[in-house]
Amino acid sequence: MTGLFSEVFLSALLFGAVTAAIPLLLAGLGEQMSEKAGVLNIGIEGMMLAGAYLGFVGSFYSGSLWLGFLTGAAGGVAVALIMALLCVRIGLNQIVIGIALTLGLEGLTALLHHFQFSRSYPRLPAADATVIPLLSDIPVIGPAFFKHHLIVYLAVALVFAMSYLYRRTQLGLNLQAAGDKPAALDVAGIDVVRTRTIAVLTTGALAGLGGAYLANVGAGLFIPFITNGAGFLGIVLAMLARGRPVWVLFGALLFGVCLSLTTAMQVAGINIPTDVIQMLPFLAVMIMLVLFGRRASLPAALGIPYERGAR
């Protein structure tokens, strides 16, 4: 048992937690923006898968991680474009289209993987870490938090950028209004459909980026169904965060620790089915909800397509 609590082990555990948390963070931030604008984006799992696949393909053929992130985000946006067209522009049911997109992308990416990579299962080399001077010398915490790929720091910075966006900018207010009272936004002369489209496309970009990170940095390869419910976790995080980006970060880290613990337990040879540990974060959140559950402050028009003049 001494090995379990050694410095090296602990920092590896935390390092893994951050790596596992980043895709959830990006998905959660994206979903949060959609929900603020009144679109319940259940297709986010599909967007992440598109991002994971295209991100891997981009990195694999170009040899550049950054290009992979770009193609991954583009893949997420492409799926989001369908969602925006069908659910925002012409107002189809968001749950039907969201689930259909998730199912379709699950199938499509698995299919493409089968024809492209299923014989060789190629891997990417380990991602370069950006080591932050001084901070990374702190024992335990240093190697855990300050030796990650640059995109990790950017993702954390994005949390604060989002906070600023929602609190201090016109666009942030418009997004909020599009979800709370779209008719009022319309009367104020702002295009509701365009505002919501911006939100959905941003969600796609973030989810795609999260997927690309998951495949390229987290796993180093693409396998079918690699996201394994990360998008749905993103939805949970966004709803629990009640519109505040910082809470998405905390939530993502909590889930990240539990996911990392699953791997760590296996490495340490502790004989509990991984399913038990996988239950921990959900159990924690459910207990929190039972103890402190209050009315979730969801946008009033969440899930309702906006049609001008409709009552």
Binding site: L86, N93, V96, I97, L103, G104, G107, A110, P224
Partner: peptide, 15 residues
Amino acid sequence: HFTLVLVSIVLIVLA
């Protein structure tokens, strides 16, 4: 997995 793709397209086109 192609079945998933097929089901998904059927759902979207029906909607």
